[in-house]
Write a protein that binds this DNA or RNA. Structure first.
Lengths: 228, 228
DNA sequence: TGTACATCAGTGAACGCGCGTTCACTGATGTAC
DNA sequence: TGTACATCAGTGAACGCGCGTTCACTGATGTAC
């Protein structure tokens, strides 16, 4: 039953996409190759015709999902920028990213949130894919922060500060999203509150002045024991 | 070989503590009961004398770890408050929480970061334990924000705003920590940058004015498709 | 306080099951002539 | 262009292994008298 090269490539992509959704929804250890293959429409035996191992599939799925999301992000921000007032694109993106819909749709959601725990625990190939994806986000948000915004207290930031603020923004968004997902079944009110506070915090980060004595400067001595 | 009640309780605690460390380090699905029991010093057969299921153990481990960390947090903040200038306790805590040492010691680190992915995927009992732990953190940080700080732009916040800022702070800290862990092997520089930006962002959140048009108000219409 | 017995925490073997991975086989595709 | 054969994607059975869970057994502890 040999297939054409084109069909083989389509089948391979179907496996990657099934893996992408399943890994996001239930984690690397929570999904078997059998389920990935049958979700993609195949029996499990043919898996190793396409991939060297489960780990290699996970790394490729991570890479592929980030690329797709980044492309969608760029298009989305551009469109929002045209539709909104100056500086409003980021606000609208935040509303979508920290929405109940995004929280509840893990399988189709941003991989930076759903794969963050697996990336720390899997091999270096997956970590590299994850790091590359995060770098892409940081670059996009840094650029976005350069756009003029009438509500900004200090409109002209230098590029180093834009990068720092973009990084804090990404941490804020992903932290709020993973936390709201972690409590959504047991405490829906807290889950919603986490989303709202994340949106609020992201806006504060955008408009906050540079701290006079940054905690992140690394200049303060840390000689006592770690506490948490 | 029946044991005294006291010894039985000590043994049970040993199992919970072994599970706490192992689950934090490698996740719920990444650790077997066999390993938990042998780490605690027992054979695996006796597990069900203490717990109804693996899930029940995970929930108890989550509960127990949060309680311990919260107690340490309260003591630590109090001590820092005595040693530091007004408002400096939170900065010092941030330095410790977002330190490379805390990032690299997942097994002993804060459960809010290491268990956040599992909480979203496991049963409601574990989610409830996680939610309770987060609520405790929010209460502690809200209180902490009431402390006078000379560097604050608006020193007198009302309690609702303190709660919002505390929630954003927790999201910022946990987001930066899990992201820095997710890339620490593949991109150590990015990992350090995430920690530093997290500290910087947390300080900005503390000092930022209330946003004039909060994105988190939920009043903006969201009729377009989710983008991420 | 002493005795008899029920309780139950720990042991280690066993259960069925699903995991990641391998393999012999099939047969249409791609390729060499 | 036509023919002969090597290639290889998919199938389905099988591999060893570790998983969560169960169970008969042991023997010191806790309890009833």
């Amino acid at each position: 039953m040999r297939l054409t090269k084109e069909q083989t490539e389509r089948n391979r992509q179907a496996i990657v996409e099934a893996a992408s959704r399943l890994f996001r929804a239930r984690g690397y250890d929570g999904v078997g190759l059998n389920e990935v293959m049958s979700e993609a429409g195949f029996t499990h035996g043919g898996f190793y015709n396409h991939f060297a191992s489960k780990e290699a599939l996970a790394a490729e799925a991570c890479r592929c999902t980030f690329e797709r999301k980044e492309a969608a992000l760029a298009v989305g921000l551009e469109r929002m920028a045209k539709e909104s007032a100056a500086g409003g694109a980021l606000h609208r993106f935040l509303d979508a990213f920290l929405s109940p819909e995004h929280r509840d749709d893990v399988a189709e959601g941003c991989p930076s949130a759903s794969l963050v725990a697996d990336a720390g625990r899997q091999g270096v190939e997956m970590q590299a894919a994850f790091a590359r994806g995060i770098e892409g986000y940081l670059a996009t948000f840094s650029d976005q922060l350069a756009a003029p915004d009438p509500s900004l207290g200090e409109p002209a930031r230098d590029s180093a500060e834009r990068r720092t603020v973009a990084t804090a923004l990404v941490a804020q968004m992903i932290g709020a999203l993973v936390l709201s997902r972690a409590v959504s079944q047991a405490d829906p009110a807290l889950s919603d509150e986490l989303l709202a506070a994340g949106r609020d915090g992201a806006v504060r980060l955008r408009t906050a002045p540079r701290p006079s004595e940054p905690a992140g400067s690394g200049k303060r001595k840390r000689k006592r024991k770690r506490r948490q």
